[in-house]
Write a protein that binds this DNA or RNA. Structure first.
Lengths: 340, 340
DNA sequence: CTGTTAGCGCATTCAC
DNA sequence: GTGAATGCGCTAACAG
């Protein structure tokens, strides 16, 4: 591997001069710059990252940790983060924690070990608090995105308006005549789950409908766990609409319903957060809450960069971004989106 | 930041002993190990990555470069790569080049600058050859995935059987009675595009159908470019089926058709490579070629690890993985998939 | 089994 | 404007 001294030798200068040409060209005479640049070109010089990072104490790399890289929601967040990072002269790397705290912990070490300058993290669940707690010790900048952790209020975050949006979605379903509602939630140790549940309950209460735990599925993992829907909810309790906490879950529910001969949305309506059909292949028969994923990534990264620079707001920054209800089954002129 | 010497001081040993406890515990006495581990625990020690990498000459990090992180095909490749990397004790980081050679070049530097031990790359296009050419100079291991580069036959790659699969897909469409076919391809500087075109032409020739350049769209970028389909192909040339080179393109075509009042697949059939509906929300009215994305990621990473270890096959390794034709509109018993 | 020495490649600080 | 010395934190090689 070509190093600084190799370039220096060829250009007939010291290593220091080469270093200056790279970092402080204004402090080097014009013709030596040319000589050095020529040598670098000929030798195809690339600096040694670890050496540079060790000397400088920074990498100009940011990491984005997401729990599920296959979920289009998170790849959109990534795009937002990436665009900001690039414009600021940083590289962005993506790490998939796969909803696995062990893996998450492993990737989090990358920040403590100074392999990245900061991290944007969508945590697995609240238990990640134990891991994140140690980061401030080393003054490692972190910004949470999408999922916050109530027990760690000193952490910056950028999230969606989960409570409000789910409340509005349920309002909407009720308005359309659905009073027998079924719910599919995930791990309640995840903030978005709890917030969306809270929103649901608020809406129900306002409409004098009772919250029925027996019509709520949590922690459903295997396809078999969903059977309650077709075995019990629909035949026995006449559920006409199901709210799934996210796009992937909605897809599961949808499949189950169709495979049991139900028509969606005519027999049973399905709705959720995040676009269950990112390529928009369907006619959009699943009303959903569109979260500003791209902006979440953008804003979180801007915030992270401010933390790294030490500039910007002093106190803790909590951003809550507004979502939008989308129902493509409506005609364009009556679309919910336009009403807001 | 806590460093090795801090731990050493607290444990009453030298830095070297602490280093040994971490890297070669078998060469340290049992009780000193305990003392050191206690000190590390109390001080929350984490090694300095850049320093370690500089001393060791390796990072145990692999990078996967993909042109479009929002395409489910690539995230599936990523999952495959990730699982192999993790099992081998490596971290995998994802980098999105956004089909931009500039950005790609930037990320490629990470390998030359020794910030990662190797790279799995799905190149933007053949022009990336100029960038990849320099990697062997620094003996940086690289394996191409999905997209190969004919001009660089010395590079390992793992790709799909694009020629054969597209030939079979067209065979299938013709068998179903479609003889008026329209095609949407992308940048012909990408190997998969050329290979899929070749397969198409082979099939047409075998069925005594002529290849009509006027019924082929290449380099279509903006939505407006697609208008030829509804303005010309269908009304004037009675095209009844359209082959799109990938899932995202198929989605564009689908939207266009629907917005112009055509029914898919009854009026016009659409087919493509890669699942255009990864969450399977639709009834699958778009027949597509399912590439073994996960295995592509797996195999490419296994190959990369072998290169890094210096073990494994000596010569260049070219893997071509078999794809599968999927048409969900068929009843289960007659599905193409089952026929193979 | 443990400590000392030296070097990984680069950049900051101080001389010239 | 340029060069020489020093240190970033860690580990491999050698002593003891």
């Amino acid at each position: 591997m070509i190093k600084l001294s190799d370039v220096a030798k060829r250009a007939g200068v010291s290593s220091m001069t080469v270093s200056r040409v790279i970092n402080h060209p204004d402090k080097v005479s014009a013709d030596t710059i040319l000589r050095v640049q020529k040598a670098m070109e000929e030798l195809q010089y690339v600096s040694n990252g670890p050496a540079k990072s060790l000397a400088l104490g920074q990498t100009r790399i940011l990491a984005l940790l997401v729990p599920d890289i296959t979920n289009p929601f998170f790849t959109t967040v990534a795009r937002g983060a990436e665009d900001v990072a690039r414009d600021a002269g940083y590289r962005l790397i993506l790490c998939n924690t796969d909803e696995n705290p062990q893996v998450e912990w492993n990737y989090l070490q990358m920040s403590r070990s100074r392999q990245v300058d900061g991290m944007i993290v969508s945590v697995c669940d609240d238990n990640s608090a134990a891991h994140l707690k140690v980061l401030p010790i080393d003054k490692v900048p972190v910004v949470l995105v999408d999922r916050k952790i109530p027990s760690e209020p000193y952490l910056d975050y950028v999230v969606g308006d989960n409570v409000l949006a789910s409340e509005q979605l349920i309002d909407y379903l009720i308005t359309k005549g659905h009073t027998r509602l079924g719910f599919v939630f995930g791990n309640p140790a995840v903030s978005v789950i709890r917030d969306r549940m809270a929103g649901v309950q608020r809406s129900l209460k306002r409409h004098d409908l009772i919250w029925r735990p027996d019509l709520c599925l949590t922690q459903a993992r295997s396809p078999g766990d969903y059977r309650l829907i077709t075995d019990d909810w629909i035949p026995r309790h006449h559920v006409t609409a199901i709210f799934a906490w996210n796009n992937l879950t909605a897809a599961h529910v949808y499949h189950l319903l169709v495979s049991h001969g139900y028509r969606v949305p005519d027999d049973v309506l399905v709705s959720c957060f995040d676009n269950p059909d990112p390529l928009s292949i369907t006619n959009g028969f699943i009303p959903f809450v569109r979260q500003p994923a791209y902006d979440m990534g953008r804003n979180a990264t801007i915030q992270l960069l401010e933390r790294i620079a030490g500039s910007g707001r002093q106190g803790v920054v909590h951003q809550i971004l507004v979502s939008q209800l989308v129902d493509r089954t409506l005609t364009p002129t009556t679309r919910i989106a336009e009403h807001r």
